[in-house]
Every structure is written in C-alpha cells, then in structure tokens.
Simulated assay, not measured.
Amino acid sequence: MATHTPTIFTIATGSAEPIYRQLADQVRRLAAGGHLAPGDGLPSVRDVAQALAVNPMTVSKAYGLLEAEGVLDRRRGAGMTVAERGHRQRREGSKEALLRPTLERAALEARQLELDNEAALALFANILKEHP
C-alpha cells in the first residue's frame, strides 16, 4: 500500500470546472489508469489543501463524493484509500468515459476557433507525442 503526496494533484484556477470536481476527476483518472492501486492511501485533506492553497472543505467535498461513488474508502487511522471493490471494472470500463468530457470541450473550442478536423487532430497527436 503506497501513500501518495499532495503533488499528485493540480488545479486550474481559471477553469469553469469547480476545484472539487477537478480533484475528483483526477482521482478517477489516476485510478482508472493504474497510477493509484486499490489500497493506496491518498494525502490528507489538510495536506492537499495546503499544497494547493485551497479551502480544506473543497478537498473534503471531493473525497466525500468519491467515497459515495465507491472509488475511495475511509479507513480509521489511515485516512482515505483507493477502494478494493469494483476497481478492475472501473478501470477498464471508464477510461474513455473519463476522457470524453475533456475532448468534447476541446472539440467545441476547435469549432469556435474554426479549426478543421485535420488541424485539431494533428495538434492532439503532437501533444500526445510530447507527453508520453
């Protein structure tokens, strides 16, 4: 069981997406991608709040949402850990679903900028190459 540091999280302060959702989405993606394994500990609410300079209630709201969804378990004395139950099913069945909203926003922005499909796809391919 690994315990992760608050640096696993980043936030976009100028985003229209609320910070608690940004944090929850990151945990979902990290779990779906295998970067967080069942039983791994998450950093404390206080540590994340301090590292990101956000209100602790914001972090607590994200963790609570993930606990209600069954992504996280609260363990007395150990804090929040990645849930064991249903982990493999969430990992395999939700990768595309987790990425879709981001790509839909990118597609909308490409349309607003009047980029054609080929230019948008070429840009996305280059970004994927830059971040292996």
Rank of each mutant, 00 (worst) to 15 (best):
T10G: 06
A12W: 09
A12K: 11
T13S: 15
T13H: 10
T13F: 09
T13R: 14
G14E: 14
S15R: 04
S15T: 08
S15A: 14
S15Y: 06
A16L: 14
A16T: 13
P18E: 07
I19T: 15
Y20G: 00
R21W: 10
Q22R: 08
Q22D: 06
L23H: 04
L23V: 07
A24G: 12
A24W: 03
A24I: 09
Q26N: 10
V27A: 03
V27E: 03
V27C: 04
V27S: 02
R28W: 03
R28T: 07
R29S: 10
A31L: 07
A31I: 04
A31E: 06
A32F: 02
A32G: 08
A32Q: 00
A32D: 01
A32H: 05
G33R: 14
G33T: 13
G34K: 09
G34M: 14
L36N: 01
G39E: 10
G41F: 01
G41R: 06
L42H: 07
P43N: 11
S44L: 07
S44Q: 05
R46K: 11
R46V: 11
R46F: 05
R46G: 11
D47Q: 14
V48I: 14
Q50L: 13
Q50P: 03
A51Y: 12
L52F: 04
L52G: 02
L52C: 06
V54I: 14
N55P: 05
N55E: 15
M57W: 09
M57H: 13
T58S: 10
T58D: 05
T58H: 07
T58I: 12
T58Q: 04
T58R: 04
V59D: 02
S60Y: 07
A62E: 02
Y63Q: 07
L65N: 05
L66P: 01
A68I: 09
E69T: 02
G70P: 04
V71H: 04
L72S: 02
R74G: 03
R74W: 15
R74Y: 14
R74D: 11
R75T: 10
R75E: 10
R75N: 10
R76A: 14
R76Y: 10
A78E: 15
G79K: 04
M80K: 06
M80T: 03
T81I: 15
T81R: 06
T81S: 02
V82M: 08
E84V: 12
E84D: 13
E84C: 05
R85V: 09
G86Y: 04
H87P: 01
R88W: 07
